[in-house]
């Protein structure tokens, strides 16, 4: 099969012919084996150090946020001024946001990919790890590991490529009047990204259109609900309550840290992956193995 044929059949540009794709596949496999064989103490030290760093960041971020409350003008001492308060609380917020970003992207994401299962450390296992995010790990593993990574960039299977059912990103997505709000949706999605991830996995659209019964959704809803409650309790109730009269400052600081994390992750995904040269596929047109390899090459 030559390049033009492939292009006609699948309806998009594949830069490689079949033999080249085979060859490429072999080389990728070799890299994989090389990496797998090189796993050892160095990697174990890396993830353990990373987890430690992240926990220190989270801990001290919160400590700094609370310490900054002592600089509020109400106290009346020499340094009690917004001039000191805001820089200090910002440092705390940035530390907490960094902790959340590390936890989600470099620790949680990778552990939930089973990347660290080989160490056989029961505390760092894909099966039991729960991350600092409103989407429960097991449900995220389904939408990410199963749907996104098995069907990378395939329309109709991978929700990521279809703008999570909210955004219109590619010309292949049918234009609807709804899409007029795209810039606003994109902004809201960026700010509340973690909520978008949690809700998207529930596929509530199927319930609304009657394709799925609500009763079948109950265990999943309960699971997500419990996760959301615990996340909200921690960041927006318990820690703020600890601050007594300064409840709102702490709640706002935690909320800002969560939003900073959301913006960061949104940027990584939308600016890092969905680029102009990005390749995407249609599920009904994928037939042969080389096409599938081509699909993964792009990721």
């Amino acid at each position: 099969m030559n390049k033009t044929l492939l292009k006609q059949e699948i309806g998009f540009k594949v830069p490689l012919g079949e033999a080249e794709i085979e060859e490429f596949g072999k080389e990728v496999e070799e890299i994989r084996n090389e990496v797998m064989d090189s796993r050892g103490d160095r990697d174990a030290k890396y993830i353990r150090r990373l987890i430690k760093t992240q926990r220190y960041l989270a801990l001290f971020g919160r400590v700094v946020i609370f310490a900054s409350l002592g600089l509020l003008p109400e106290w009346g001492h020499a340094f009690a001024s917004y001039l000191y308060f805001f820089p200090v609380i910002s440092i705390g917020v940035i530390m907490l946001a960094s902790a959340k970003i590390l936890e989600n992207m470099e620790i949680g994401h990778n552990i939930l990919h089973a990347q660290w299962d080989w160490m056989r450390d029961p505390n760092i296992q894909s099966g039991s790890w729960e991350w600092d995010h409103v989407c429960p790990s097991d449900q995220w593993k389904h939408s990410h590991n199963v749907r996104h990574h098995t069907w990378t960039n395939v329309f109709g299977k991978d929700a990521d490529v279809a703008g999570y059912g909210l955004l219109r990103i590619f010309p292949e997505q049918k234009w609807k009047k709804f899409n007029l709000g795209n810039p606003i949706y994109a902004l809201l999605l960026a700010i509340f990204f973690e909520w978008g991830v949690a809700i998207q996995e529930l596929e509530l659209g199927l319930v609304v259109t009657g394709k799925r019964k609500l009763s079948k959704m109950r265990p999943m809803l309960r699971n997500t609900g419990m996760k959301i409650v615990r996340q909200i309790l921690k960041d927006y109730l318990l820690f703020p309550l600890l601050a007594g009269p300064f409840f709102l400052y702490v709640a706002a600081a935690n909320g800002t840290a969560c939003i900073l994390r959301n913006l960061w992750i949104y940027m990584i995904i939308f600016c890092g992956i969905f680029q102009k040269e990005f390749m995407y596929f249609h599920v009904s047109k994928l037939r042969t193995n080389p096409e599938r390899i081509g699909m993964c090459v792009n990721f």
Binding site: H113, A114, D117, S126, G127, K141, H142, N145, V146, H149, T150
Partner: peptide, 9 residues
């Protein structure tokens, strides 16, 4: 999940 060794489900 994937039945092909990707997702660890």
């Amino acid at each position: 999940g994937c039945r092909m060794g990707i997702c660890h489900g």
